[in-house]
Amino acid sequence: MSVVLTLVEQESGEPAETSQEALTLARGIAAETDARLEAVAFGDEGAAVADDLGTAGVDALHHVTHDRLDSYAPVAWGEALAQLAAADETEAVVAPGSERGQEALAHAGATLDLPMAANCTEVDAGDEYEVSRQRWGGSLVERARLAAETKLLTAAAHEVSIESAPEATEPAVETFTPDLSDAHVRGRVDRIEESDEEGVPLGEARVVVAGGRGVGNAEDFDQLEELADLLGGTVGASRAAVNEGWRPHDDQVGLTGAKISPDLYVACGISGAVQHMIGCKGADNILAINTDPDAAIIQQGEYAVIGDLHEVVPALNEALRNAE
């Protein structure tokens, strides 16, 4: 029986959200090709995810251990996936649409000399696969045909709805020690430097108050900072505001900045170009504050206030202070 392998990253002992999405996509492929669904996890805590993989219908977990793998090593991860794929009759290898998922599978693709389909949203698995994948950060969909002895694909982040398997399984845990050389650990993580920034990181904030060209200068971001504080959130910015030098690039939301999914995104003086919306479309609610009633952000958001943010935001701040 052939196998569909899925790379699973763990976050505090549980499969990361993007990994659960990858598992959902992979289970569909395994069902259509009559294959076993197997997971691959790295690191000391890797085996801890086994319990959670049962609900995803995983038949076995390959827990990859090696004394050279005490920190993340992209080539070695790719190599381990390639060695596992070569060991069995492997139908497909699916990785999450996380930075590590994309990177490790690209290395596996280089090792195996096989094509890789990045950021897939749907897969129709037969002898050949018909896949839909994101281009231009998701503003275009490419339908494509993938044909290879082992198909390599990553699941686009936050596009596949996580579903449990119809029947839970009890995955067997098998330890796998890949054959690694010095070359496989080049470029591994040497150390982590913690940020000394205070406040909620942009990617984890429940509320993001973002400003664009309409803010007009760096000083007026103070009003947005206050609104963010009052809502327990953090400040973001459009590329235009970052290019003006009003905010650091770390605050940038969009195609070439952060892609975020807060409960509320308050877009102040942001027109809503495609490249920006890619960064904030994951938000549950978008509230746009804009002088232009025809701005694209107003078409795309849930709520809008037509007006000058320099008047609306201070008034809102006052109301929030009074409500406390």
């Binding site: 000399d113 096989l114 094509p115 890789m116 389909a117 018909e130 839909s132 281009r135 998701g138 503003s139 275009l140 969909v141 490419e142 339908r143 494509a144 045909r145 993938l146 044909a147 290879a148 002895e149 978008i286 746009a288 009633p293 107003i298 078409q299 795309q300 958001g301 849930e302 709520y303 809008a304 206030v305 037509i306 007006g307 000058d308 008047e311 609306v312």
Partner: peptide, 25 residues
């Protein structure tokens, strides 16, 4: 070995529902 070929490009479905305008200023 293996091929990956484009069939076609498609514009994703977009949400055309307009925002609820809560007021002016």
């Amino acid at each position: 070995p293996g091929t990956f070929e484009k069939i076609e490009l498609v514009s994703p479905e977009t949400d055309d529902s307009e925002a609820e305008v809560l007021g002016d200023g």
